[in-house]
Amino acid sequence: MTIILTRAYLAVTGYPQIGSGSLHIAHALYGGALLVAALVIEWAFLGSRARTTSVVVAGIGFGLFLDEVGKFVTKSNDYFYYPAADIMYLSVMLVVIGGQIIRLARKPTPHESLSNAADIAAQGIASGLGTSRRRVAAALIDRAESQGADPKTVNTIRELLSQCPDSPERILQMRLRIIRWIPSALLAPWCVTLAGWALVLVSLEVSLSSIFHVNFRPSELLFRDTHGGDDLLAISNNSYLVLSGATFLLAGFAMLARRRARQNQTGIIWPLQLLQAVAIAFTLIGAVFDFAQFGFGGLISLGIGLFTMAVIANETNTTIRGMTLKQRADRIRL
């Protein structure tokens, strides 16, 4: 978001520069300063508010720094270097996906559950706890206790949690307000059905167009103009053939399994999780080639993919909220 806003501001204002003569203070420097500020906030203050603030400040700083990557990888300091969009995208995805892999690699041990609960309690002592965070900590403690954690330690952390003052959950309240602005139709199950089967059909079309080298891929219809020449197009076709073929098979299977689960009212979520994983892979990997061929125009197809992922995630979260507290505790990652 920082990159998009920065590029939009510069385009509207005619790319102004701070400095005079031989001096030019690039906004990458402001990005580096904000990254340092985020570290200082994390080191100097305790509590969830400070942590949230440091994450926001660091995100803005990273975006400002990354926006000028074209200058760093070219001898001519070319801010408009065409593959810069791909470099930015891959850098962000490496951070996001790497962090998710670390968090989801395995279920937390009882000691890790207690440690996470203690961390929440420590933040709560510093800045208070909202209802949802308190429930998460309680679920972690109960999970650790059921798996044989030391009763004395469990009781100590539970007592510490009970001493945390209440605090309004402003971020959660803001999130709920935003959700209330979203048309209810977009949160209905039929929207997931439409998005899921659209993913199946689009992946089939992309697979067939890649096999027969037909210039009728959805992204090419959106953007028309392509860059990179025949070599890039050949790489894109071969990669999309594998990606879209796997997406067609897995997404189709997930949609059929979801339909059966809804008919039987079993409440299982693995079809939704599989569908979301497929949508994430298809969107994020496909966007690499879209950015390479169409530059920042690739944001359009990425936006469509993110919408698909969002409606699937909403139904997944709705299903999870219907689970017992113990079932939900196994899914908590901090």
Rank of each mutant, 00 (worst) to 15 (best):
I179S: 11
H213T: 08
G286P: 04
L222T: 12
T283S: 09
L250W: 00
I60M: 00
T53Y: 05
G98H: 01
V214S: 10
D231V: 09
L140H: 08
S113A: 08
L5K: 08
R7L: 05
E68Q: 09
Y81C: 06
A8T: 11
F248L: 10
R258P: 00
F307N: 01
R49C: 10
I332T: 13
Q163E: 15
A84R: 00
V95K: 03
F282L: 03
L221A: 11
Q173H: 08
F45H: 04
A50Q: 03
A37P: 00
V202P: 01
V200Q: 01
G59D: 06
I179F: 11
L90V: 12
F296N: 04
A84T: 03
S76R: 05
S301Y: 15
W270T: 07
S203D: 05
A84Q: 01
A251W: 01
E42A: 12
A287T: 15
S22G: 11
A292E: 02
L306T: 04
F212C: 07
R170I: 15
M323Q: 11
I3V: 15
I102S: 11
L272D: 00
L187T: 10
L176A: 13
E205Y: 03
G21M: 08
R217C: 06
L204Y: 05
I285V: 14
I312Q: 07
F65I: 02
G19A: 12
G99A: 07
A8F: 10
L64I: 03
L199T: 06
R260V: 10
L172E: 15
E205T: 06
R158Y: 04
A279Q: 10
G61N: 02
W43T: 07
I178V: 15
I300D: 01
T74W: 11
V214F: 14
A37Y: 02
L129R: 04
T2N: 01
A126R: 10
A261G: 08
V311H: 04
R135G: 11
V69P: 05
Q163T: 15
A8Y: 11
I141W: 00
S209C: 15
R135E: 14
R134A: 10
L39I: 00
Q17C: 12
V12R: 12
T153S: 03
I312H: 08
A195M: 07
R259M: 12
M88C: 06
D86K: 02
R158F: 07
A138G: 09
A105R: 09
A188K: 06
I97K: 02
G19K: 04
S203K: 06
G297A: 11
Y240V: 12
N237W: 06
G322P: 01
H111V: 10
A234E: 10
P110R: 12
E42V: 09
R51F: 15
C164K: 03
R106P: 03
F223I: 05
Y240A: 10
T53E: 09
S76T: 11
I125H: 12
R170G: 14
G229K: 06
D78R: 08
D142F: 04
A310W: 08
T324D: 14
R51W: 14
R262Y: 00
C164Y: 04
R143N: 07
L325T: 06
G267L: 05
T109S: 13
Q147E: 11
I101V: 15
